[in-house]
Design a protein around this nucleic acid. Structure first.
Lengths: 331, 331
DNA sequence: GTCATTTTTGAAATCAGTTTCATAAATTAT
DNA sequence: ATAATTTATGAAACTGATTTCAAAAATGAC
């Protein structure tokens, strides 16, 4: 392997000088040229492991999401990747698949790597509090953390969330205003905070209009995947004239089932989702949904993280982003 | 920061002993317990930068794809991530957006990181030969390379590709057999090898049936994204009764345009794609397409890469995977 | 041409681990 | 109980860079 020492020897200078050339330090221009020529000729590329051993940052950001396959997360990865790459930071990716143990393992890997910062975009579940000691340890190692969609548990850590309550609240209100008499709700995994909040928004809208909540048409099970939308739509068929879904994938699944059963969307049943993945405008009928401003959220998250890493930011914030409903054909 | 020296001092042993505990080396069990207790108490996590400085591998794999947003690549990322994670390897991700300069920059970053291996899944373009010196340099640094969908340019490097020619060949043959009289082709960026090969398959099928190739209905422009499908479908309308598209996204775009213009799919025009992204079975009508066995390709790629890294594999291979056509509703 | 100042440079320490080699301690054999 | 062998441990070298400190060289002032 080539090292800075080999280069130094070949040029006839000290390793320190080579290092200075590599880092634009003060070197006589004639010396610099000689060194650069040999570096070029020898195809020398410095070893980041050694470079960053002595520095406090290492230009790496760890990012955990539940699953890249979900378009909303692949879009998030893209935005984050591009933001980081522009600033010469690199992205290490971890998929947790919603498992808290996996999340902890990935975080530990990030710690070993001594990443400069971590972006966590996994959903908050019931046993999230077990992450607190891990977060504390990471903070002890100087790793900056920004949480998207999680609580900070009293830690000095930024959190960024979409206002789930107002999302489903607006959507449900819209459906009632449009004349829907019985609005059902396919919520998703009841252990997740997003589920609880989205449910709360739905209930809030009903209560405001004096409509009683019928537990028969509120389903809090499933994993936010398409198949559960299919399954529960069958359950709700005939009982409702509108369905609010916890996310777009379940909504699209629900639409499939409903159409197969011969009912028309939106005439017989209105269906709407949450997220606004790009699929939402592609399916037919196109999906009315709550738009999560993912790009905005990711950029804020990245900016906050950079602020922490560069020492510009010293006070944790709780940032909440307002979602808007996008009315298309399905409701 | 805590180090192995702090732990050693606290326990009353040498750093070497702590290192041995960390690596399951030969240590008396009573000593081991004492050390582990302090490690636990002090929340000590070793620093991978130092760990891997002295080792030849560093448990990191760099992966370049054009764009995570494209479902076919996000699926690839998922498969690769899972394979690596199971083997305690970590994934550094780079999106090149089809730009060769970006690709080189990302590769140089991987070199600085001294990744154990690199998986490149970007499409082969005209100026791909300029990558050769970069590959050579990487090989010089002991970095193993596996190329998906590229040529090896005479280097001792594995390549894995789907048989593009036979994919469009089978598809075009199927359309002709189904009675289509005039089959158009929306190919995508003509600089990419995939484009040329898929076009070749289409032409081969026509020639075999004695049908002349009409350049009027063969369009070799665009970027494999949905909007180009929309654009070129307009162009082909009225001239053809079937369209083969270079990928699913363009096919879905084409379907949109065609339906908006009042024509029925597949009755008036058949549309088919290439890739078989999960969207293909969701759109309506569902898309007839050439199935790329992405999971299989990624697993082979990972296995080969691991083989090289672990020294099991010493001879480069050119692996070609056969695609199958999946007949759905659109053709 | 001499002295003061500024610019370049190199030796050595440092980062946080692993590994080799030699020694000390514990076992086993006689 | 002693010698031979095995096991456990520590000192020091090593990984590949950066950085500090001091010395050497170059420049500027007079």
């Amino acid at each position: 392997m080539k090292t800075i020492y080999d280069i130094a020897k070949k040029v006839g200078v000290s390793p320190a000088t080579v290092s200075r050339v590599l880092n634009n330090g003060p070197v006589k221009s004639s010396t610099k040229e000689k060194v650069l020529k040999i570096i070029e000729k020898e195809n020398f590329i410095p070893d980041n492991r050694a470079v960053f051993l002595k520095k406090t940052t290492n230009q790496k950001i760890g990012c955990i999401i539940p699953d890249v396959i979900n378009p909303i997360y692949s879009y998030a990865v893209k935005v984050i990747h591009d933001y980081l790459w522009e600033r010469a930071y690199h992205l290490i990716l971890g998929n947790s698949y919603g498992k808290i143990e996996e999340e902890k393992n990935i975080l530990q890997m990030f710690e070993r790597e001594r990443v400069s910062g971590v972006l966590i975009g996994t959903c908050e579940g019931e046993d999230d509090s077990t992450l607190v000691p891990v977060f504390k340890r990471m903070i002890g190692y100087g790793i900056k953390i920004v949480l998207v969609g999680k609580k900070n548990y009293g830690l000095k850590v930024d959190t960024i969330s979409v206002n789930n309550i107002s999302g489903t609240y607006k959507m449900t209100k819209y459906l009632i205003k449009a004349g829907r008499k019985k609005v059902g709700f396919i919520a998703g995994d009841k252990n997740l905070r997003a589920t609880k909040e989205r449910l709360a928004g739905y209930i809030k809208a009903l209560k405001e209009k004096g409509i009683p909540v019928d537990r028969e048409v509120v389903i809090c099970e499933g994993d936010y995947k398409m198949d559960y939308g299919k399954k529960w739509a069958k359950e709700l068929k005939g009982k409702v004239d509108a369905i609010v879904c916890g996310n777009d994938l379940m909504a699209i699944g629900a639409m499939k089932t409903i159409e197969e059963s011969g009912l028309r969307i939106p005439d017989d049943i209105a269906v709407c989702g949450f997220d606004d993945i790009y699929l939402a405008s592609l399916v037919k009928p196109s999906l009315t949904t709550v738009h999560q401003p993912i790009e905005k959220i990711c950029k804020i998250a990245c900016e906050r993280l950079m602020g922490w890493i560069e020492g510009r930011i010293k006070k944790a914030e709780e940032i909440i982003v307002e979602p808007e409903i996008i009315v298309r054909e399905s409701a």
